[in-house]
Structures are given as structure tokens and as C-alpha cells.
Simulated assay, not measured.
Amino acid sequence: MKPLIAIPMGDAAGIGPEITVKTLASEEAQQYARMVVVGNKRVLENACEFSGIRLKIETISHLSEFNDAPGILNLIERGNIDFSTFRQGEIQGQCGKAAYDCIAEVIRMAMAGEVDAVATTPINKESLKAGQVDFIGHTEIFGKLTGTPDPLTMFQVRDLRVFFLTRHMSLVKAIQSLTPEKVCDYAIRCTRALQKLGLAEPRLTIAAINPHGGEHGLFGSEDDDILLPGSELARAAGINITGPKPADSVFHFALQGKYDAVLSPYHDQGHIATKMVDFHRTISITNGMPILRTSVDHGTANDIAGKGIADPVSMIEAVRLAALYAPCFRR
């Protein structure tokens, strides 16, 4: 039987509901998985209407009521929206709160083993803040609600996988936060995450911070002082890791299969590398948790919300990878 993937609707004012209904209606996505949506029925009905999508939305209270017939969107209702004040494409606290409620429910379902994985739609950081939700994004929510102190973010596009040593920090602060011990810790945890995804003996490498890896101090000493000793510590712990390798070439070689994953020291380095391969099919996978979560890696696109023109290709790809890796997480 195909894996069952839970999809929260995301920010109601953004394109999340639209790409959700388009994905549920997609023959390609249906080939990969069965899907259940957690969200607001009226929001999803509106998304179907302005997108020209024909789906029958059936509200269920439990997955035992799941209807596997074609053209059915199985919905578990969460996320209250006051439609007298709701505005498509605008930052609203109620949308941030509703998005959080939907995410909390899919996490509960996955932790309980009711679904095989979660594939998330975009949420808006400003809406979360306006809704007094004390998290800045999905990763932090999933970390807290699954009891995972520091989840690992991994991007995958085709066979290129990229982990991140740091996430939402300025470049200066990101580099200042790095230590050999942190590099070693991440190398060990990234290797375990790859093994969890089915790679028995993963080959990991780390991208350099400075041009040409610093050329032994000519262009900066961080690679020799931090990344290299961190890699050596990891190798001493039995991890198959090389580097630091010059960042202008290492992602290309990983895409060609020389490495199973690249550890990127800072946010934009890895984001640019993956998104230049295929922007729409770059998918975020949160590792290190007891459950599997994949996600689109784009925002709520409020400027086009409600126009019916959002492309669901990223969401379909997120469902594909969730279905691909779901068997690795079955208990």
C-alpha cells in the first residue's frame, strides 16, 4: 500500500491551500502516495474554486474514515479563520495561528504512527508573530513538538543532498558560531541521518568557507582552523568525511555522485547551490527527528495568492520524497 502523507494547509492567506488542492488533484502525486489534508474546509473550497480544481472535500474525524476513491480530498478540520476579516495575500495573525494549529496536528498524527510522513506547505514568519506563535518557522516547531533539540535541515534536489551547519544567522555570526567540535558533531549526526534514509555507508564532505579553501591562510584561516580539525575529529570517530573542499566545485561533484551529501557552513552557500540545479524541485527534509518531514522550499507568495496561478511542482516533489523515504521511518 502506498504511504499515507499528511499535509497541513499552511498560511491560509498564501498559496499553501492552492498548491495543496492542486497536489491532491495531481495524477503524479497520487501515484506516489495517499494524502490527507489538515486545514480549514472553507479555505480549501475557495482554493479549489479560484484554481479550477474539481475535488470533493470530505471531512473526517479519524483516519479510519479515509475515503480512497478518486477525486476525494480527505480533510481533518483544524485552523479557525474569521472570514469577516480574512484577506487573501495579507499578513494576518489568525492565519499564523491557524497554520500552527494544523502543523501541530500533523505532528501529533505522525508521532502517533497514524501517518507515514508529513509534507508541509509554506507558512509566513510575520503571520506567526502576529498570531503570537512563539516560533520563527517549521524547523523550530517540529523540533519542539517532537522533542528534538536541534533538527538537521537537509536539502535534496535530484541526487544532491546538502546539510547546513548554520541556518538563519548573519554570515559573520554564522562563521563565529563554528567550532571544530560543532563540525564533528554535525558530521556524526548527518551521517546517522543519511543512514536512516537508507544509505548504509554515506560519503560526506564539507564545503569550504573561503575561496579555494583559504589557500592555507592566504584567503582566510577558518578552513584550516575550524573545518579541517573538525573533519579530522569526525574521521577519528569513524565518519567517512573529506574536506573542506572548495565550494565553487564541491556541489557539482556531489551532484555527479562523488559524494552522498555536502555539509554547508552557512545558509546561502547551500541554498544557492541546490536552487541553481532546479529551483522548484529543491526540497527541504528535516532529519534527526523520530518522524519524517519534507517541505517545499519557497514562501507563501502572497503577491500571487488567490489568483490560481501558483505552481504545485514543489509540493508534488515534496510528496514524492516523503513517500520515497517513508519506509525508512516505519516502526
Rank of each mutant, 00 (worst) to 15 (best):
K2M: 06
K2W: 03
K2E: 02
G14E: 03
P17I: 10
E18K: 10
V21K: 06
T23H: 11
E27Y: 10
A29H: 06
A29L: 13
Y32R: 02
N46H: 10
N46F: 10
N46A: 12
G52T: 04
E58K: 15
E58S: 11
T59E: 15
L63Q: 09
A69S: 14
N74G: 05
N74Y: 00
T85W: 04
F86I: 03
Q88Y: 06
G89P: 04
G89L: 02
I91L: 12
Q94K: 01
Q94N: 00
C95D: 02
K97L: 15
A99E: 05
C102W: 01
A104C: 09
I107V: 15
A110C: 13
A110H: 01
M111I: 03
A112R: 09
E114A: 13
E114C: 07
V118H: 04
A119E: 01
T121Y: 01
L128D: 07
K129G: 13
K129L: 14
G131N: 09
V133C: 04
V133H: 00
D134Y: 10
H138Y: 05
E140M: 09
M154C: 14
Q156D: 02
V157S: 01
R158S: 14
D159Q: 15
L160R: 03
L160F: 11
L165A: 15
R167M: 14
Q176D: 14
S177C: 11
S177V: 11
T179S: 15
E181K: 15
V183K: 07
D185P: 00
Y186C: 12
R189W: 05
R192M: 08
A193N: 04
Q195Y: 02
L197Q: 00
G198P: 10
L199G: 00
E201H: 12
R203S: 13
A207Q: 02
A208G: 15
P211A: 05
H212M: 08
E215V: 14
G220A: 08
G220C: 08
E222D: 15
D224I: 01
D225L: 14
I226T: 07
P229L: 06
E232W: 06
E232H: 12
L233N: 06
A236R: 15
A237L: 06
A237Y: 09
A237G: 05
G238V: 04
N240V: 08
N240C: 11
I241S: 02
T242W: 12
T242N: 14
P244W: 03
K245R: 08
K245H: 08
S249Y: 06
S249G: 15
V250D: 01
F251I: 00
A254P: 02
Q256H: 10
Q256S: 12
Y259A: 13
V262R: 03
S264K: 02
S264H: 03
H267L: 14
G270F: 03
T274P: 00
V277L: 10
I285M: 08
T286G: 07
N287D: 11
M289F: 03
R293E: 07
S295T: 14
A301Y: 07
G308E: 05
I309H: 04
A310K: 01
A310Q: 02
D311V: 06
D311W: 02
P312S: 07
A318F: 03
L321M: 13
A322T: 09
A322Q: 04
A326L: 12
C328S: 14
R330N: 11
